[in-house]
């Protein structure tokens, strides 16, 4: 079943045509990759999907529902979350508080009573489990802003899991993380997919990572869809190689 369907989406910024006629599908339960050289329109694509800016043309459907007119928080509440290329965490709060505030509103309601009550013990427990899952349990009482960049990425990932999304869109999850940690992260992404049932849609520059992780890859270049297919096919696609190496 298709979870996210992007159909003929175009987006321009002034004279720059960042996305032209892009179509792609993310099936439920899958791990899908999005690659492309710098400036090829990957992040624009992500921003369009999560409602960060309106699109010029096309349709975006999440679980069958048209979402191209919805705004960021509304889309997030439907169960589609994104992480940021420039990692974003709440720097002046400790890791536990970062996790606590990422828990979904129970019962979908944001009633005043719920708002002014303290965070429940189950949420605390779940937060600790997830921090343990990403290997940050011992740092849970430190201010998030004092963590290293790589640790902040892991925290952001854990926060996203805390929100219990159906689809998680990751913008370069391994950028700035050291090679040893990367293997651990790939493993955790896989487990998030298989154990928690979260569909993943990943932008990634690290070819080793994305080829290992994704089952289907889309490649953008100059705002257009250049190629798509399973990792082996993409790896051997001459157009993709040219785009990355800069051949014309």
């Amino acid at each position: 079943m298709t979870m996210l369907e992007v159909k003929n989406v175009s987006k321009s910024f002034g004279g720059v045509r960042a996305n032209q006629d892009i179509s792609l599908n993310v099936p439920e339960g899958s791990i899908i990759g999005l690659i492309g050289p710098n400036g090829s329109g990957k992040t624009t694509m992500f921003n369009s999907v999560v409602g960060y800016h309106p699109i010029d043309e096309g349709n975006i459907r999440f679980e069958g529902q048209e979402i191209s007119k919805l705004r960021v928080p509304e889309i997030a509440r439907l169960g589609m979350l994104r992480t940021f290329q420039q990692t974003r965490i709440y720097g002046e709060m400790n890791c536990m508080d970062n996790m606590r505030i990422s828990a979904p509103d129970e019962g979908g309601g944001a009633g005043l009573r719920h708002l002014f009550s303290s965070v429940s013990a189950e949420i605390d427990e779940h937060a600790e489990e997830l921090l343990d899952f990403v290997g940050l349990h011992s740092k849970r009482l430190l201010l998030a802003g004092n963590l290293s960049f790589g640790q902040q990425k892991l925290l952001e990932f854990a926060m996203a899991l805390m929100r219990k999304p159906r689809l998680l869109m990751l913008d370069e999850p391994t950028a700035g993380i050291n090679p040893t940690l990367i293997n651990g992260l790939i493993d955790r992404l896989r487990r998030a997919n298989s154990e928690f049932g979260i569909t993943l849609f990943v932008i990634e520059h690290n070819m080793r990572v994305i080829m290992n992780l994704a089952e289907h890859i889309y490649c953008l270049a100059h705002g257009k869809m250049l190629a798509e297919g399973p990792p082996e096919e993409i790896q051997n696609d001459q157009r993709v190689v040219d785009a990355y190496l800069g051949a014309s």
Binding site: V72, L81, R82, Y90
Partner: peptide, 24 residues
Amino acid sequence: KSRFGLVLNAIRDDEDKAEAMGLH
């Protein structure tokens, strides 16, 4: 001490992130 306090701090630290996480 309540959830609301955390919400306020989250808005202070990164409002875009808070929105992206679905907070009202």
